[in-house]
Computed example of a mutant assay.
Amino acid sequence: MVRRLAAALALVALSPFVAEFLLGDQYLSGTPRPGQQLAQFAMFVAFYGSAALLIRETARRLGRGWPTILTLSLAFGLLEEGLLTQSLFNPNYLGIRVLDAGHIPELGIGAPWTVYVLTLHVVWSMGTPIAIVEALFGKEPWLGRLGLAFWSVVFLLGCVAEFLISLLVGPEQFMSHPAQLVVAGLIVAGLVVLAIRGFREPPSTAPAGNAWTGFAIGLVAGTGLQLLERWESVSPWLLAALMLVLVAAAAAVIRALNPPAFSLAAGALLTYCWVGFNTAIGEGTAAIIEQSVLVALAVALLVVTAVRGPICLAGIDLSPADESTVDSREVSSTVD
């Protein structure tokens, strides 16, 4: 019971830590005060953290694996950027004009921004924290019915807070065209149905690939996406196409090599370390010191996870093959 509670709390804290703080997004409007950052973190725990936990619990309770988790993560990204913050449709979102490049007037979106921001949520906001915490605590479900109900309510409150803050804070109030909201909502619903009913894969297959190869894929592909997003001298249409090719190529290589999910997440997490630090440099000494602490915490987490893992935490000395058997047995007993 205590172990599963610790796992759930670790995930609800790690998701916003990665999604907003390690990325350096708290510096978008200058270095905020400590109290403001704590308030931001609490809201992001309610929004990102509860979403990551519910996505992960849904997949594992259904006996599903990463295709389900990543599809639900894509639905979350579209929910946030299409319906709540509406950054996919707001031409002056946060005053940074993210839709100017590769603007598609018929849809009201910017091609590079759409590909980039949705990939961020799938890979970093949801996928990376889930993979790291599961590497520490295992793949069995962590919540009972009361826990599911509690975090569902927290997520709804987080959605309301995210929507109201996005609506009221910024250069100007913005509301998307009703047709855009309807289409985005339908796609979100379709992705949820696809994730729940469209995949029949087992919860996991024993990784066959090398962990260092997975780490290299996560770091190289993640860094490549971040560098492409900063490449302003190229056509935005080519930029969006290159992003899609990179994502597709990385997915194909991962499917072929099947490295451990944690190794991919480790490479992705280190990508955010340099991205967030690069953002902090422009905000002065206080931001640099703060971001250095966040990066140190992220690296320490990776080291602890790599050294200990779920077997050591459980106090069991088993081979990797036996570990998958334990996970399957725990899933069955928990669901029953």
Rank of each mutant, 00 (worst) to 15 (best):
I55Y: 00
S328V: 10
P16E: 07
Q180T: 08
D327W: 15
E283S: 13
P105D: 02
I289Y: 06
A250R: 02
L264Q: 00
L22W: 09
G267P: 06
T58H: 01
W142E: 12
T271I: 03
A248T: 14
F262M: 07
P259T: 05
V133E: 02
R33W: 11
D25A: 15
A111Y: 00
A101N: 07
N90D: 12
A265T: 05
A46R: 05
L72P: 00
A13S: 12
V169K: 10
I55L: 09
V188G: 01
L28T: 10
A249D: 09
D25C: 03
A75N: 02
I281E: 13
V193T: 12
L181M: 11
S125T: 15
W237D: 04
G222R: 01
L79V: 02
E330Y: 08
G127E: 00
D336I: 13
A280N: 10
S292M: 08
L28M: 09
V45P: 05
K139L: 11
R329L: 14
R197G: 14
W113V: 03
G267A: 12
C312L: 11
P67C: 04
G77P: 01
W231C: 12
L94E: 09
I316M: 14
I316P: 12
M43G: 15
V45Q: 07
V331Y: 03
F44E: 08
M1H: 10
Y27V: 04
M175K: 10
V45D: 06
L54H: 03
S166W: 00
W113P: 02
Q40L: 15
G63E: 05
A189M: 07
F150G: 10
G309V: 12
A287S: 14
F76P: 00
A51H: 02
L70D: 00
L301I: 12
L118C: 03
G276N: 03
T114E: 03
Q36M: 09
V122M: 05
L239I: 07
A135D: 10
T213E: 15
L301V: 11
L78S: 00
A13T: 13
A46D: 08
A321Q: 15
P171S: 10
T71M: 01
E323R: 14
S176P: 04
L194S: 04
I281A: 13
F155S: 01
T285M: 10
L270D: 09
R61A: 08
M126L: 08
Y48A: 05
V303P: 06
R308F: 12
L239E: 02
F163S: 06
E229D: 15
P16A: 11
R64M: 01
L186E: 05
Q37L: 11
T68E: 00
P16C: 11
A179Y: 08
A184W: 00
L167Y: 15
I288Q: 14
S233M: 06
A59N: 03
L270G: 10
S333V: 11
A248N: 06
A135E: 12
R197H: 12
T58K: 05
F47W: 14
F277W: 15
A161S: 07
L318G: 08
F163M: 08
S235F: 02
G222D: 03
T71A: 05
D317S: 11
E134C: 06
G144R: 06
E140H: 13
P16R: 11
L70F: 06
A184P: 02
T58P: 01
G185T: 07
L301D: 06
F47V: 11
T285W: 15
M43Y: 07
L168T: 14
